[in-house]
Nucleic acid binder design. Structure first.
Length: 150
DNA sequence: GCCAACGTTGGC
DNA sequence: GCCAACGTTGGC
């Protein structure tokens, strides 16, 4: 999951109530499908900092609630309000994630590009803008072997 | 600040 | 249903 740390960072997650947050505001259909259909309770989450000087993986989280309607779409006062999302048949979904740990130093995008096992990783492909992306088990294992987790 | 990538919108 | 225009994302 990608986040701009000046908006919401891994540190923000670590001090949030119950160290948990709802991943609201995703307004892209492909990412919506992941949130609604694919992401399961207990799934690991790589927390990625984007659009910042030090781009890369900043920490780990875990899914603690599976897809449910993103209620911020129903609130006209919310920045993520979307009048087309009908509460009876919601357009947008979110999951809840909980903090697990912070990396000992960001695992930079540059570093990720050097790892052969991550050649196909979605976030490394050009033009990949999705804010929620699947990670394969092979990619997960390769990333978890890095020294920043110890 | 630039600009490539790409999703969305809307005229036809 | 096509596609040009436009807006956003996000690395550089």
């Amino acid at each position: 999951m990608k986040s701009e740390p000046n908006v919401f960072s891994i540190d923000d997650l670590s001090v949030a109530a119950d160290q948990t947050t709802c991943w609201d505001g995703v307004r892209n259909y492909q990412a919506r499908n992941s949130l609604r259909d694919q992401i399961k309770l207990g799934d690991g989450v790589l927390f990625y900092h984007s659009n910042v000087e030090l781009i890369g993986i900043a920490g780990e989280a875990v899914v603690v609630r599976e897809g449910y309607p993103d209620y911020t779409a129903f609130d006209p006062k919310d920045v993520h309000f979307d009048p087309r999302s009908d509460p009876k048949s919601p357009t947008w979904y979110m999951v809840d994630i909980k903090f697990v740990r912070t990396c000992r130093g960001i695992i930079s995008l540059q570093r990720l590009r050097e790892i052969p096992a991550l050649k196909q990783m979605r976030v490394l492909q050009r033009g990949m803008r999705l804010s929620v992306q699947p990670v394969t088990s092979g990619e997960w294992r390769a990333i978890m072997m890095l020294p920043q987790w110890t």
